[in-house]
């Protein structure tokens, strides 16, 4: 019941943030239960990316760039009961899918990259049996030198 409530809180907060897009909405893995033994995750909060009209005067666009980074979570139930969401479990989350790490990786992959614009940021979630979760933040954008 607690896990359902926690999950519902994440959904409601995301819906609230959609009404106020300037508000930050954290891209963190939601823990599978209230019994969290270890949580060390970083995720994106807000990124007011550039648009084509706000590029520096000396910017030279060079095409599409992509970057991705992931967080991982494990939630092990104490027992298997139906519905699964009501099984108490212990959970652990780790990983760094922050925008800082993604932009650093893009810069390493594209030497000379000064910045990005027209960026789309997506969340790629893979979850198996509610036990293992991988949340990746993917950035697809255009780069400039």
């Amino acid at each position: 019941m607690t896990a359902v409530f926690v999950r519902l809180l994440f959904i409601v907060s995301a819906l609230w943030a959609d009404d106020y897009p300037h508000d930050a909405k954290a891209g963190l893995i939601s823990p599978g239960s209230a019994f969290i033994i270890y949580y060390d995750g970083q995720g994106p909060l807000n990124f007011d990316t550039l648009t084509p009209g706000s590029l520096p005067a000396d910017a030279r666009p060079f095409g599409s760039v992509q970057g991705r980074s992931c967080q991982y979570g494990v939630s092990i139930p104490f027992n298997i009961s139906y519905p699964i969401v009501r099984s108490p479990s212990i959970s652990s989350v780790w990983g760094n899918s922050s925008l800082k790490k993604i932009i650093n990786a893009m810069t390493n992959d594209h030497p000379g990259l000064k910045g990005i614009y027209d960026a789309q940021i997506d969340k790629h979630t893979i979850q198996v049996l509610g036990i293992f979760t991988r949340l990746c933040i993917e950035v697809t954008a255009k780069g400039f030198r």
Binding site: F47, T49, G53, D118, K123, G130
Partner: peptide
């Protein structure tokens, strides 16, 4: 989300261009 297996991409952010851009 699926209870057994989930593999989805969901939108997170997109700062779009405006006519002036």
């Amino acid at each position: 989300c699926g209870l057994i297996y989930t593999n989805v991409r969901t939108p997170y952010g997109y700062h779009t261009a405006t006519p002036i851009d």
